[in-house]
Design a protein around this nucleic acid. Structure first.
Lengths: 269, 269
DNA sequence: CTTGTCAAAATGTCAGACATTTATTAATCT
DNA sequence: AGATTAATAAATGTCTGACATTTTGACAAG
């Protein structure tokens, strides 16, 4: 009748059962299910496992399962109807801007490539504008955060062992830009950066070893953003931020050609 | 000891008890509480009513109350801790990008002015960029939506009885721009428009009767955005979209002076 | 072939008891 | 008297079982 969603949960239960002892109960279960969903365990339109199956397979009470599924429902990942069951919703309906979703997404290796492209396309169009706002509104504390993150990136560059730490500083740098805009809405969008940056670093890891100059170059461009914001030069900050993202944008085929991408005065040096 | 949050709920229960018979149970209760919160019923840091008090005052089961409070928790409006109770979180922590929050906010008359300014400042910086993207990515269906919304705005202009309908078409127009960008993230931000536009129309209602020319002028500017997007002229769409928002931005003191706000080539005429 | 009714399955809801955390108050020891 | 500890109360979190509601499919009657 229904597809083999539930039985297949039984078979692959091994990979899902080894969760860190007991964290937040429902919270941990929601994270687990969401990450399995993002990893491609089920596709939009598929039937999601039934409550009782999850109760049995994870040996938790129905309450925990219901709370976890409530989180997935609230974030638009699944839809539940009375006597029918739960189905995975279309990607268009996922609340990508919910901090929970961003948190769940971080570190998923097999994220849908088109999803990464969508998120990065957003960043590519938004972050330059935010950098301009940041140059206008930044306060000393913001500049300190930016400087600290940049120094952290410098300290962890070229060290293959500290790649995760470097990524963390990278996230912190971009997040500091959003915070420096001093706008409630832009600020909350900083959450969206984490999965995107992590995924990009993971995927560019292969390429970077071939071309080699990528890392230093990226570092220099970040430095130029920091310098422009410190100098309170909005226009320079905007184009510098665009330069930071441009190469990755080209690789992801988001910007058609590197020539006439954005006719801003400062764009053609 | 604790402030008078709970007792005052008793006294003013009259204004909250007349809810449309019974809609979605917990869903309706969450909406009710959220709107009361947005209307200034409690301020950040205040104690939120206890579960049992809400159960008693609204004559609903504890389950309903817990589900409603779970929604408020998930959207960052309140924070609940084990034996302490629930407190209202700072505005910075509210998930303004959650569709639920936008929905709850629409139509609140006494919204915090600074919150409206923050949301509009975001729109003022973002929407021009989105308009540029829309000009590049719009498909026939998108143009149809834009055209339909614009016609709707024209048909309901200058008719004082159809102000709500005009606002609805206004929302549809701007939402169509975001959808036309064909980017998952930008698209989901369309939800953020509704409370902002409604609030602005309500607040500008007094001013418009004095200056009079505001409405026709706004209509013409919207038309210029539509025309630029149809013409696939990204630069023109960007500046036209900025023009739509500029006057309101000036009134809200978001853009410092009307002269050197954004040095884009098409910006001077 | 259509329609009506019944039964099974799944989610939604309720009520009560119990567990856990937090804060206050009282008691005890130095 | 002051500080530390123990008991108590209040609030939220959790579990369990039963019941309600909705959906779907099967089966029989027309």
């Amino acid at each position: 009748m229904s597809d083999k969603a539930a039985p297949s949960t039984e078979t692959r239960t091994t990979s899902l059962n080894n969760l860190p002892p007991h964290q937040g109960g429902a919270e941990a279960l929601a994270r687990l299910l969401a990450r399995a969903l993002f990893a491609g365990r089920w596709r939009p339109g598929d039937d999601f496992p039934k409550e009782m199956d999850l109760c049995h397979h994870f040996a938790v009470s129905r309450n925990q399962v219901r709370n976890a599924l409530a989180s997935l429902t609230a974030t638009g990942l699944i839809e539940r109807t009375a006597g029918r069951g739960s189905v995975v919703r279309m990607v268009d309906d996922w609340h990508l801007l919910d901090p929970l979703v961003s948190d769940w997404m971080t570190g998923i290796e097999s994220l849908d490539a088109s999803l990464i492209r969508e998120i990065f396309a957003f960043r590519y169009s938004a972050e330059p504008v935010v950098a301009r706002l940041a140059a206008d509104a930044a306060e000393p504390a913001d500049l300190d955060r930016l400087e600290a993150a940049y120094q952290g990136m410098c300290a962890t560059a070229d060290k293959p062992g500290a790649r995760d730490l470097h990524a963390e500083h990278d996230v912190a740098f971009h997040d500091a830009i959003y915070r420096a805009s001093h706008n409630l809405v832009w600020r909350q969008m900083g959450h969206l950066l984490r999965p995107s940056i992590i995924a990009l670093i993971q995927s560019s890891q292969a390429r970077v070893s071939g071309e080699h100059e990528g890392l230093d170059d990226s570092l220099a461009r970040h430095g130029r953003v920091l310098e422009a914001i410190t100098r309170r030069d909005g226009a320079a900050a905007e184009s510098a931020a665009r330069e930071v993202l441009r190469r990755t944008a080209i690789d992801l085929a988001i910007v058609p050609t590197p020539s006439h991408s954005h006719p801003t005065p400062e764009d053609s040096p």
